[in-house]
Design a binder for these strands. Structure first.
Lengths: 353, 353
DNA sequence: AGTTAGCACTCACCATCGGAGAGTGCTAAC
DNA sequence: GTTAGCACTCTCCGATGGTGAGTGCTAACT
């Protein structure tokens, strides 16, 4: 029945339609799809026997899989892949949904660090999967401003405002009792020199700082701490990954057993891997999809990721997306992620102008 | 066999020993404990028949429960309660463990906001349960300092450093283009007036601010935003609950099915309930234990909480603890939580001196 | 040619059944 | 008060068999 070569060729329209029907049915029911129930439910104008033939063909092509002899078919990762790339219509997000998402974004107006969380939880709600978001981050952050706040006699709080928005706080133990005035003074001198600098630009400035007065020494001390903080900050590609709505994932029958879920959770802590992922997605510049075994780590072989970059490459960029079982409503997820990443773009442009 | 009245009286020593053995055996194995295996494993110098008699008695007293006729006994919530209160020896934490915990605390030296996370994850590791921590928070926070940082022509970042440590960032949209100098000026004026004030002390100051110059208006605008931010901050009793090591809980056989776990997760998001809990624990002033159905919400009927307050009441206090299945190694959990809360006390004293 | 009806076959699922084993409660002896 | 003995109970486990959904194949049909 294979009209073209069995493996790589595009499917004939009918096979494609059937694959599509199977996938959509399976996504909806989580049950293996049989030939009869398929013709009944999807109003295909062919008989179940024909469907069976096509199914057998699709199975030979590696797009479907039978859990056992008499149990209907389930899409393979390759099946989903083909579906996502050439079969599924890329539906535009329904206006209602756009509105709801926009509305949610309107909620937490300007409490900065909340966006990412918000993006993640919006995505989670809209797709009924786990939402993921990393904060916008530049390759090399610039210091916008430093502030030193007294926190006891020999303790100061070093508040670092970065050009791209985030603030970092570090404690700075002091050798000598120091009051707020002195701290202000030091902060002023620091700001004059280091505002707008990146970590690398900072290094040369550290060399020959004067160490004559108390203020000098305070400045030097703080500068050193700042340089370290910046290096650390830049080193972490993903500083943090907000994931919300893991509860939705727990609802999926494929994760009824805790142990599968566990492995996913564990991986969500793996900064190194996530860093690579963020890179990939940022490079791609558009929605990127990872289905099941396409994910390198075995822990993710049961899940699919739909990720999109947002922000301005290099300046301030991050990734948003969703994580769910491979049995995912891809077209909807893709539209949603794309839409949210668009909103995030607007936000970044608007805020980090 | 009940020497005293059946219900409330303290147990005779032998019954207590047996209850204790049952609980410790059950905690270790997660299997209902039978009379024979108990005498074998715990070297009791009585026969299994005697143990059976005592067991029957303990069951009548509501301390044990049989899943079914021939399945051994499992402690009830009341059983654990009695165990915790009068039977278990309060073991001192092993020096090795103290050392390990101390060491972990040493790791993340002074990157402030990390403590709570650290406390949670230390507790999780040490007890093999989920660790929980809320940030130290005063009843009414004081402003230590305000900073305004330019973030584009008509956008400023309002950085609020609170006396107790945390920093809050809010965006402040501006009516007119404003440069950093003007912002500095406004910040200086704000700091003169509001440093050390609480939200309530702030209100009267807002009344008759001058609105003549651009700076005046900027100051007024910022002051208003600050007041709102402070109100919001104080309103949230628990601003955030860090929980780490939920993975450990997933390992427990009682949570092999995802749905039980789900309900627990859901509740961990419930700020209102957690707020009450934090209050209770803070009031108690020492380790507080909630076993199974002692937790009001039904979602927590399968878990136990061991919580302790830390910090200085009113000034800056929070709660740390662990969450696990009711089948928990209470003595160890209690010692660990108490020890960590002690460390947190030191930290708070040292830092917010 | 492609499509379809018919049919035998397969195999998970479910309920039933019957030991085996662990644990109990009771009774009678110590 | 304690314990040995014993009959009883009930879960767990494996085997058994029927049911039904689903398949692949073949032969007839268009």
């Amino acid at each position: 029945m294979a009209r073209r070569k069995d493996r790589p060729g595009p499917l004939d329209p009918r096979s494609a339609a059937i694959l599509r029907a199977i996938i959509e049915e399976y996504v909806a029911t989580a049950q293996p799809v049989g030939s009869q129930s398929l013709v009944e439910r999807c109003r295909l104008d062919v008989s179940s026997a024909t469907v069976r033939n096509v199914m057998a063909e699709l199975e030979r092509a590696g797009l479907l899989h039978s859990p056992h002899t008499s149990a209907g078919r389930v899409p393979t990762d390759a099946g989903y892949r083909l579906y996502v790339e050439s079969i599924a219509e890329s539906v535009a997000l329904a206006p209602v949904e756009r509105l709801m998402i926009r509305h949610q974004f309107g909620q937490v107006e300007f409490a900065s660090e909340q966006w990412f969380r918000l993006a993640a939880s919006t995505l989670a709600g809209a797709t009924h999967s786990a939402g993921i978001a990393t904060p916008a981050k530049p390759e090399a952050s610039r210091i916008r401003r430093v502030d030193l706040v007294s926190g006891g006699e020999r303790m100061a709080s070093l508040v670092l405002v970065l050009a791209e928005g985030p603030i970092k706080q570090h404690l700075l133990p002091l050798d000598v009792p120091t009051d707020q005035e002195l701290l202000d003074d030091a902060a002023r001198r620091l700001n004059e020199r280091i505002a707008g600098k990146t970590a690398t630009q900072l290094e040369p400035l550290l060399r020959d700082l004067p160490l004559d007065t108390d203020t000098d020494r305070l400045v030097a001390r703080a500068a050193e701490r700042i340089a370290r903080a910046m290096r650390e900050f830049d080193a972490n590609v993903v500083e943090d990954v907000f994931s919300e709505g893991l509860l939705y994932v727990m609802e999926a029958p494929e994760f009824a057993q805790t142990d599968k879920l566990r492995r996913v959770f564990v991986l969500l802590q793996d900064r190194a891997y996530l860093g690579d992922l963020v890179h990939d997605v940022t490079d791609a510049g558009d929605v990127r999809i990872f289905i099941g075994a396409e994910n390198r780590p075995a822990e993710l072989h049961d899940v699919a990721l739909v990720l999109a970059p947002y922000g301005r490459r290099g300046r301030a960029s991050g990734v948003v997306g969703v994580l769910g079982p491979t049995r995912m409503a891809y077209p909807h997820a893709i539209s949603t992620v794309r839409y949210v990443s668009g909103l995030m773009n607007e936000l970044v442009d608007h805020l980090y102008a």
